[in-house]
Computed example of a mutant assay.
Amino acid sequence: MAEPQDRAQEREELEEIVRSIGRPDAFVLHEVIRRTGNEELRRHGGALFLSAFAAGLSIALSLIVPGVLKRYLPAADWAEVLVRMGYAVGFLVVVLGRQQLFTENTITPVLPLLHDRTLKAAWRLARLWAIVLAGNILATAAIAAVIAHSGAFPPEIQRAFAEISHQTIAFGFWATVVKAVFAGWIIALMVWILPATGAAATFVILLMTWLVALLGLAHVVAGSVEAFYLVLTGEASLHDYLWRFFLPTLLGNVFGGVALVAALNFGQVAPEVEEKKDADGTG
Score class of each variant (00 low, 15 high):
residue 184 G to I: 13
residue 164 I to Q: 07
residue 105 N to W: 05
residue 124 R to V: 04
residue 119 L to E: 13
residue 159 R to K: 15
residue 34 R to L: 10
residue 52 A to T: 08
residue 234 G to F: 12
residue 93 V to E: 01
residue 204 V to G: 01
residue 115 H to Y: 15
residue 143 I to G: 10
residue 135 G to T: 00
residue 93 V to G: 08
residue 181 V to T: 11
residue 156 E to G: 01
residue 7 R to Y: 15
residue 50 L to C: 09
residue 49 F to D: 09
residue 265 N to V: 09
residue 116 D to S: 08
residue 232 L to G: 02
residue 238 L to M: 14
residue 277 K to N: 13
residue 79 A to E: 09
residue 187 I to C: 03
residue 147 I to Y: 08
residue 91 F to R: 00
residue 2 A to K: 13
residue 89 V to E: 02
residue 27 F to L: 09
residue 169 I to E: 08
residue 238 L to I: 14
residue 258 V to E: 04
residue 250 L to I: 01
residue 86 G to W: 09
residue 152 A to T: 05
residue 277 K to E: 14
residue 146 V to W: 15
residue 179 K to C: 04
residue 128 L to R: 14
residue 235 E to I: 12
residue 35 R to E: 06
residue 47 A to R: 10
residue 159 R to F: 04
residue 62 S to C: 06
residue 131 I to Q: 00
residue 43 R to F: 10
residue 147 I to S: 01
residue 27 F to G: 09
residue 243 W to A: 05
residue 229 Y to W: 15
residue 23 R to A: 11
residue 48 L to D: 01
residue 116 D to Q: 13
residue 52 A to C: 03
residue 140 T to R: 05
residue 98 R to Y: 12
residue 277 K to Y: 13
residue 72 Y to F: 11
residue 237 S to K: 11
residue 162 A to Y: 11
residue 29 L to F: 10
residue 154 P to L: 12
residue 229 Y to Q: 01
residue 241 Y to K: 08
residue 223 G to H: 15
residue 241 Y to H: 15
residue 145 A to E: 13
residue 6 D to S: 15
residue 178 V to G: 05
residue 91 F to L: 02
residue 97 G to W: 06
residue 190 M to Q: 06
residue 276 K to L: 12
residue 82 L to N: 01
residue 15 E to P: 07
residue 150 S to P: 00
residue 275 E to W: 12
residue 192 W to M: 07
residue 52 A to R: 01
residue 66 P to I: 06
residue 174 W to C: 06
residue 106 T to D: 09
residue 209 T to L: 10
residue 19 R to K: 14
residue 176 T to G: 09
residue 111 L to F: 03
residue 32 V to D: 08
residue 163 E to P: 01
residue 246 F to P: 02
residue 59 I to F: 03
residue 245 F to V: 02
residue 36 T to K: 14
residue 227 A to P: 11
residue 265 N to I: 05
residue 264 L to F: 10
residue 213 A to V: 12
residue 264 L to I: 14
residue 195 P to F: 04
residue 34 R to H: 00
residue 138 L to K: 07
residue 98 R to D: 14
residue 56 G to S: 05
residue 270 A to E: 08
residue 261 V to S: 05
residue 267 G to N: 09
residue 72 Y to I: 15
residue 216 G to Q: 07
residue 282 T to I: 10
residue 279 A to N: 09
residue 225 V to F: 02
residue 210 W to M: 13
residue 165 S to I: 05
residue 139 A to T: 03
residue 61 L to F: 10
residue 247 L to E: 03
residue 258 V to Y: 07
residue 278 D to C: 15
residue 125 L to W: 09
residue 216 G to V: 04
